[in-house]
């Protein structure tokens, strides 16, 4: 099943990049540097979406005591962390030409950084607890506490940012999006989404095999292996 999502992701990426580089016009204000938007914004969206989906699975695993959902949360975390890192990296690379600095304490970039810390915290807690049962449930609690705090962090950073610096040119207020720019970005977002699903499915299969080597229900469900 994972390979299906990989294929879709590959096709969408090619299509998205084609639009991004060949169809979308040069931006009158930022020239060509705005083309980074085609991976920066999708990565940022995915980093947030994956955290929410991860917390959803974590909650299900905690409440229903179902091991598979906790494993799904465990499988999503690295991809979410990767997306956050990509969003930060591309944000810095985009900020350099537009704002003249590698790192700007823009509200969104800052909360993206904190989101990366949340992912790192989740994975660090998961890695340091040997017993998988306790690892699942402890990290599930951390993910849920994180989900409650993400809006708080975002708004306090927003308030803090406007207090100190005044509203700097934030990313989405960039020039009105030509339709092709928007479609390019949406296609790339979809591609990133498919990619994340594919990677997480592959990782969850590996986690299942590592952890439940002999469990009977495993052999039926993944007989194809």
């Amino acid at each position: 099943m994972a390979t299906f999502f990989f294929l879709v992701a590959a096709i969408l990426t090619v299509w998205g990049l084609y639009i991004g580089f060949f169809v979308a016009p040069t931006d009158f204000q930022q020239g060509e540097s705005y083309r980074i938007i085609f991976i920066h914004v999708p990565a940022a969206w995915m980093s947030m979406l994956i955290y929410l989906v991860m917390s959803f699975w974590a909650a299900i695993g905690l409440i229903m005591n179902t091991r598979l959902s906790s494993m799904m949360a465990h499988a999503l975390a690295p991809t979410g962390a990767l997306m956050t890192f990509v969003a930060l990296w591309t944000g810095a690379f985009w900020g350099r030409p537009t704002w003249g600095a590698w790192w700007v304490w823009d509200a969104r970039l800052t909360s993206e950084l904190i989101l990366l810390f949340l992912y790192i915290g989740y994975m660090a807690l998961r890695a340091s607890i040997e017993d998988p049962r306790r690892g699942d449930r402890a990290s599930a609690i951390l993910a849920l506490v994180g989900v409650v705090n993400v809006p708080i962090i975002y708004f306090s950073v927003q308030w803090w940012n406007t207090l100190h610096q005044g509203a700097s040119v934030s990313l989405t207020k960039s020039p009105t999006m030509a339709t092709s720019m928007l479609t390019g970005m949406l296609v790339m977002a979809l591609a990133f989404w498919m990619y994340s699903i594919a990677v997480s499915l592959m990782r969850v299969r590996r986690i299942i095999r590592d952890r439940e080597g002999n469990a009977t229900w495993l052999s039926e469900s993944s007989g194809v292996q």
Binding site: T26, G31, S33, R35, T90, W94, P97
Partner: peptide
Amino acid sequence: GGYGLYVWGS
């Protein structure tokens, strides 16, 4: 358009 480093860097 002169931004090669940044675009290709990311």
